[in-house]
Amino acid sequence: MKGVVKLISALTTFVLAFIALGTGPVSANGTGSMIGLAGPPVAYLCEDADYQGYCLGLYEGTRINKLDEKFFNDKASSIKILDNRYNVTVYEHSNLTGRSTTYLFSDRDMSDENIGNDEASSLVVSANQEELNGVYLYDHYGMSGDWIKVTSNANTIPLNDKISSIRIVGPYDITIFEHANFTGRSLNFSGNANPEGTTILDLVPYGFNDITSSILITKR
């Protein structure tokens, strides 16, 4: 009888842990949901890079003050945004304190963000307060690191000589210039209808890494 009780106790612990954690690895179409919550998740927080390992389903209005209560403290390595009407802000410490990073789009590797890898201890899911359409300029490869959003021309940019990747969301074209005041060598990129935007992962193959100083923006 003791053996049966121990077995039931172990199974109960496993089931509760599974429910608290959410689904397993995220699927490409974002299927799966957590018991007791209506509707599909709007994002997943995953323990390994490239959205692998166990993933915690996040829902509209989710606020988790202590990720250790979800067996997920200091485990997050990637984040998958399934519904671009929402963003997720993750924090270094419990109760939404410490270093933080807000994710508008999926990120396959959180290690080069301000929050870092295996550092998240709390989070909140919020509705985006402004439309995502625009051009995003990042100072690291793969749309990561510090970034700025631009929707108009700039004869100099805040991240001067630091741009390494670009995301274009919506009907925008961008021309990047080597020097200020739209001079020097230039490159042009165009957006498309993909919700995640047109992505230029790496400006190195274009010979344009860390040299952009000014930009021209055209909305089609």
Rank of each mutant, 00 (worst) to 15 (best):
V4L: 13
V5K: 11
L7Q: 11
L7C: 04
S9N: 03
L11T: 03
L11Y: 07
T12M: 13
L16Q: 12
A17S: 13
A17T: 14
F18L: 14
A20K: 09
G22E: 00
G24N: 12
P25D: 09
N29E: 14
M34K: 15
M34I: 08
M34W: 04
G36K: 10
P40Y: 08
V42D: 02
A43V: 11
Y44C: 13
C46A: 05
D48M: 05
D50V: 09
D50Q: 12
L56M: 15
E60L: 00
T62D: 15
N65R: 13
K66V: 03
D68F: 11
E69V: 00
E69Y: 04
F71C: 01
F72V: 03
N73E: 10
N73M: 10
N73T: 04
N73K: 14
D74E: 06
A76F: 05
I79T: 08
S94T: 11
T101D: 02
T101P: 07
L104G: 07
L104E: 09
D107R: 08
D109Q: 09
M110T: 15
S111M: 11
D112R: 05
G116Y: 03
E119C: 01
E119L: 00
E119N: 07
A120R: 00
S122Y: 09
S122P: 00
V124A: 03
V125G: 05
A127V: 13
Q129H: 07
E131Q: 13
N133V: 05
Y138P: 15
Y138H: 09
D139M: 06
G142F: 13
D146M: 05
D146A: 15
D146W: 04
W147Y: 15
I148C: 02
K149R: 15
N153Y: 07
P158C: 08
L159G: 06
S164V: 05
S164P: 01
S165E: 04
I166W: 07
I168H: 07
Y172L: 02
D173L: 04
I174Q: 02
T175L: 01
I176T: 02
H179S: 09
A180Q: 11
A180H: 10
R185K: 08
N188L: 04
N188W: 00
G191N: 03
G191P: 05
G191R: 02
G191H: 06
N192S: 07
N194S: 13
P195R: 07
P195Q: 10
P195W: 12
E196I: 01
T198R: 14
T198H: 11
V204F: 02
I211Y: 03
T212S: 09
T212R: 03
I215D: 03
L216C: 02
L216G: 01
L216D: 01
I217E: 13
T218I: 12
K219T: 15
K219I: 10
